[in-house]
């Protein structure tokens, strides 16, 4: 299955090859985060772990949701639920571009036949209070990945700098497998006893979620959930660092960050329901950013974020 001398035959084979490749380069292969997020960057393995001085190398698939992009499964390449493949290495190694090109080779993109280009693309996430410089990577004129050197996350300067790679898996796989409509893409091996296409797996859910996202989701409930997540996030961070029960120092950066993620996703849902006006939009983004910033502030107060008792003393 992972014989990279042959072309991959299915969506899942491309994912498996990426997993094998990045594992062989020393990355911890993590599992998707168990919450609804808009992009792989939101996984705490990227957002929080890009902060502080601790070295880090992780790769994972992250299901991502963008309610406004739903097209009832009819558009050849737009989905409200899709997969991103995410790699984060801190500090960014000097040969990250070569490592990345190796991953393209692994999934069957032969650099001697294709035109691979690094085209300027600065990255900024207003809800994460983050920015970085890098490129979108083009293969024969198609964007196949985002390549970013994080400079700031949650309002904190990144030092050392993390290198982040994001592959839009459906688009990349459609290209490698030469498929025109995402729903026609083989999900498992077409020679399997029960061959499944992407559409077999996701066509129905795309329809269901598109209807719910656009027309049914209860906006009053969502608005309330937003407020609640925001309040809970703040309440968690307001707790003293020292836990009265165990007597240990336990800064709850991750539970608080879960609430920030939740607020961010609810905002996306409200946006899809069309109940957020242009002026309100900025205010909501600002509120989510305030939460992620507070979580980043908390994370750097944890051991994983670089806190040590010595540093305080």
């Amino acid at each position: 299955m992972s014989d990279t001398s042959t072309a991959p035959r299915s969506f899942q084979e491309i994912i498996l090859r990426l997993q094998t490749y990045w594992a062989s380069k020393g990355c911890a292969i993590l599992q998707p985060y168990d919450m609804e997020v808009g992009a792989g960057t939101f996984h705490p393995a990227t957002t929080l772990r890009s902060l502080g001085a601790q070295p880090w190398a992780a790769a994972y698939v992250q299901p991502s949701r963008r309610p406004t992009d739903g097209r009832y499964g009819e558009n050849p390449n737009r989905l409200q639920h899709y997969y991103q493949y995410q790699v984060l290495i801190k500090p960014s190694p000097p040969d990250l571009q070569e490592l990345y090109l190796g991953s393209l080779q692994a999934i069957g993109i032969d650099a001697s036949l294709h035109d691979i280009r690094f085209v300027e693309d600065d990255w900024e996430s207003p809800t994460l209070g983050a920015w970085g410089l890098g490129w979108e990577v083009w293969c024969d004129g198609m964007e196949v990945s985002q390549f970013t050197y994080f400079q700031q996350v949650g309002g904190h300067d990144c030092s050392p700098v993390s290198g982040e790679l994001t592959y839009g898996l459906e688009r990349l796989a459609m290209y490698v497998l030469a498929v025109d409509h995402v729903m026609d893409m083989p999900f498992n091996d077409p020679q399997s006893p029960i061959p499944l296409t992407y559409g077999d797996v996701f066509k129905q859910t795309e329809e269901e979620y598109a209807r719910w996202n656009f027309d049914v989701a209860n906006t009053e409930v969502l608005l309330r959930h937003f407020e609640e997540a925001e309040a809970e996030c703040k309440a968690i961070l307001d707790q003293a660092h020292d836990d009265p029960k165990t007597g240990k120092r336990i800064v709850m950066a991750h539970p608080a960050y879960d609430q920030a993620i939740k607020a961010s996703h609810i905002f996306n849902l409200l946006d899809a329901r069309g109940v957020i006006s242009v002026t309100e939009r900025q205010a909501y983004i600002g509120r989510v950013r305030a939460l992620t910033k507070a979580c980043a502030d908390a994370f750097v107060q944890t051991r994983a974020g670089g806190w040590t008792p010595e540093a305080v003393a």
């Binding site: 500090p91 960014s92 000097p94 410089l133 890098g134 050197y149 400079q151 030092s159 700098v161 290198g163």
Partner: peptide
Amino acid sequence: MRWGSGTLKWVRP
């Protein structure tokens, strides 16, 4: 930008 563990700034590494 900065890259890796360094402090030097250049347009890209």
